[in-house]
Write a protein that binds this DNA or RNA. Structure first.
Lengths: 116, 116
DNA sequence: TTGACGTATGCCGATATGGGAATACGATGG
DNA sequence: CCATCGTATTCCCATATCGGCATACGTCAA
């Protein structure tokens, strides 16, 4: 076991929401519970595709399922998104500060090359 | 070209911050600019490793570099984290609501199996 | 110019991922 | 019990990562 390719999408919320389609699923679920087929159709993806994404979301706890007859309704459990919100929020003062102020460390080193 | 393995870490902020070590780098950079070696040491990773992560962060615009003599100082540009914060914030009312209230859709279908 | 130092890249191996297609599974209705 | 609908799982492929290692690159000092 030499190289590992990332923290396993299935164990980390940050990873789970790294996938655009999974984010879309979460957004759709804000409107209420839905069966897989519904989601698949609305997002223009295959049923197996949707099922797979939902599985990831379930494994990180962002989604809940309950069986209703033949169907399985997926519902949102947004609690796991709170840490994400808070983590990003920890940078709020940095994106609010203008870059000039942010670069206090730079003050003394005026006029340096600005890569890219 | 059949299967694509994800949106390319280098083009999406969500993907860039899916990596724990990259998140750590961003956190460290809140304290101010730093050279690669510094970060690498502090995070217990190799210099090439740190350079690679920083490259990803640079490509999504979360980090800036400027050359100072032999060194290259990396600095935070947190503006890209704002969308993340806002996206997650869009779910705030859902994690605040108790699950019972959230399941209004469920009200009429009492006592259903609760998977997992 | 030649070192030396700091840093970026290239290459490799092991692994994970997402999509497609086929198929297995589960529950309900007859 | 069987057919059917809704959904999950499995296989396979092409690709993308991440880490380690070696190495190329760039800048400064002498």
């Amino acid at each position: 076991m030499a190289g590992m390719a990332r923290a396993a999408t299935t164990s980390d919320v940050f990873n789970a929401i790294a996938e655009p389609q999974r984010r879309e699923i979460l957004v759709l679920l804000r409107a209420g519970e839905r069966p897989v087929t519904d989601l698949a159709q609305e997002l223009g993806m295959s049923q197996p595709g949707a099922s797979k994404h939902l599985r990831v979301l379930r494994e990180v706890g962002l989604v809940r399922v309950r069986g209703v007859g033949k169907q399985r309704l997926y519902g949102l459990d947004a609690r796991g998104l709170r840490p994400v919100h808070e983590w990003a929020g920890g940078f709020e003062r940095f994106w609010n500060e203008s870059f000039d102020r942010l670069d206090t460390y730079v003050q003394d080193l005026k006029q340096t090359r600005q890569e890219e």
